[in-house]
Design a protein around this nucleic acid. Structure first.
Lengths: 354, 354
DNA sequence: CTGAAAGCGCTTACAG
DNA sequence: CTGAAAGCGCTTACAG
């Protein structure tokens, strides 16, 4: 029988053992100086011997240090409801951190507007937060922002994506390339060996393409290894999510490649493709896509989509908040890259992911 | 911009508003009586109006209440390494609960011995813990144990499985039947329509069969709905995990049903089946099984197993510890049934699950 | 350089 | 029935 416990020495005990007052012990612990060298060494020794660690409850109670964080994420009012999940993770984290005095301000920006992002980024700086959570949709603007935060020594956690050359404390999210490979494995299973696979990216603005491109590459890379499929893998880029645009591109692709049996959507807009298929009365294509947003879940339940890949959006923010807090309150430096599991979701296990 | 925060009223504030002392407020809050009806109502009103909630840090600091839990789980030294994951979740939970004074004693029992379980259960009771985490492998003995705990008013959390008719606070684990259905969906994808599926349960003692049987039923139920497969679904029960026993049973099954293309292991012993296949030089069967134990992960990486279903053993215990703590410290009654996600793991996403 | 005291918000006796 | 006081472990001025 093992006991996990912590019968801790208190400052008072250390003081008694060292023959000094608790004030002096505190000074040693926090390196606040004004302690005679001899005393310093004596106290330090005892701290080590007793393996002293402070009582966090008492510390928090006393200091009443309020941590204030800010999250800067895309506006979920946008057509991309994926971003509705992120606030839930923040909510949960704050609840768990309940007893600790942590506040968080939620700022959002328009995914289509660099201008808006820049102005919101300025607001964040103005708030002088203790930590920031950011989804770096716009690469250049986010890099500038990250550098400003670094200059102010404000820790930054990226979620959903990250920028290699920007300064940041940690990233939490998918390994995007690998996620494409997971899709590849699923597509390979779904597709009869002689049939073709269509890889569709719907990208309104060029800035959003990085994710989709990395997933496409991951997916294609899977088929460079052992695979059953002997058909073609066709990539298709649809420039905007309007139904006309989708119809035009898809009509063309299906006409040109009549052997397509499976379609992989590299983003969360599987439901738009499903609408197109419905309009055209096409029911023999299998779909694989991303994100457990309502419309997609519906497709899964109806058997129209076969698999969805889940990025755990709420876990991204949940962990981001906790990492910031732990870093600030306990100086616990987190792993720089935390890749969340890439969940494979189908009609039978979807219930347990929502 | 939304602010999530908690600028809380303190007892002192309540006392001032009510024109009483903090002692009286405390008496009201904790229903300790000895308060005049009129005062009681006045204070209660103010507590509600100010939406008072106590400062947990201060409470813990003051009370120095030590929670001591006990976990009673199968001995992982057994051939079933699945149980090695559970202690890790406990570890993690205690770390997260760090500032709070929570202890946990780990007791294990031999999975083959009801006697051993009973004696360990007695030890648990003798420890007079504040909460218990149990894997109810032995149904009857676990029921007796649960009733004893209930009599002592010690909250009990089941993990991995649960007993309907026993008293317990919460269950955390798989929905076993649904997990079988998930396997069904995967098997349906893996198996050519005209080929057969073999469902194998390796069960040394009858007590362990419940899980395996429920998964088998779940799996079969999937094929009662829409499915591609038109072949047979054959169930095979192997009474013990010795290689002789497996060889004999498998030789027979494969001889009788030469059209088998896919094998579903309802437990975590996929690696034993893989060993058999290797001995026989069979390489064209696809495997689906349970649990990310080392030997199975290896099979996945080598392409011998196609899918593993993950039960999140560490999350079971992690959540169990946290639920017990929240229940005891904040009287937060948990959901009775918490079904964890049924993760579908393949060679491409395995890395992110370990 | 060092110690004694006050106070964070709460709970627990104790005095009246 | 009610209030004043002590103390949980720590930190922060302040006095010497």
């Amino acid at each position: 029988m093992k006991q996990k416990s912590q019968d801790k020495a208190r400052i008072k005990d250390i003081a008694r053992l060292a023959g000094v007052s608790i004030g002096t012990v505190d000074r040693v612990i926090h390196n606040r100086g004004e302690v005679a060298e001899k005393t310093l060494q004596r106290v330090k020794k005892i701290l080590e011997d007793t393996n002293y660690s402070p009582n966090v409850m008492a510390q928090v109670l006393k200091s009443r240090k309020n941590y204030s964080f800010v999250s800067l994420l895309p506006d979920p009012a946008d057509d991309n409801t994926y971003w509705k999940k992120h606030p839930l993770g923040i909510e949960r984290a704050l609840e768990e951190l309940q007893p600790f005095p942590v506040k968080l301000a939620t700022l959002t920006f328009n995914m289509q507007s660099e201008k808006d992002f820049q102005s919101k980024a300025e607001s964040v700086i103005a708030l002088k937060p203790d930590g920031v959570i950011l989804a770096p949709i716009f690469k250049d603007e986010s890099t500038t922002f990250a550098k400003k935060l670094a200059a102010e020594e404000i820790p930054l956690v990226f979620i959903d994506g990250f920028i290699e050359n920007a300064p940041f404390l940690a990233y939490i999210g998918e390994n995007i390339f690998r996620s494409g490979r997971v899709a590849g494995e699923l597509l390979d299973l779904l597709t009869p060996p002689s049939r073709d696979i269509l890889i569709v990216s719907i990208a309104r603005n060029i800035k959003n393409v990085h994710h989709l491109e990395a997933r496409t590459q991951g997916c294609l890379s899977y088929f460079n290894g052992n695979c059953r499929n002997l058909g073609k893998r066709i990539t298709l880029r649809i420039p905007d999510p309007s139904s006309q645009s989708i119809s035009k591109a898809m009509d063309g692709a299906l006409r040109e490649h009549p052997s397509i049996s499976t379609v992989f959507l590299t983003g969360s807009r599987t439901y738009l493709l499903a609408r197109y298929l419905e309009t055209r009365g096409i029911s023999d294509l299998q779909l694989v896509g991303y994100d457990l947003i309502e419309e997609n879940i519906d497709l899964l339940r109806k058997g129209i989509a076969k698999f969805l890949i889940n990025q755990r959006p709420d876990e991204q923010t949940f962990k981001a908040v906790k990492k910031l807090f732990e870093y600030l309150s306990m100086r616990k430096v987190p792993d720089k890259m935390e890749y969340l599991p890439i969940d494979i979701v189908c009609s039978e296990n979807i219930d347990f992911y929502i």
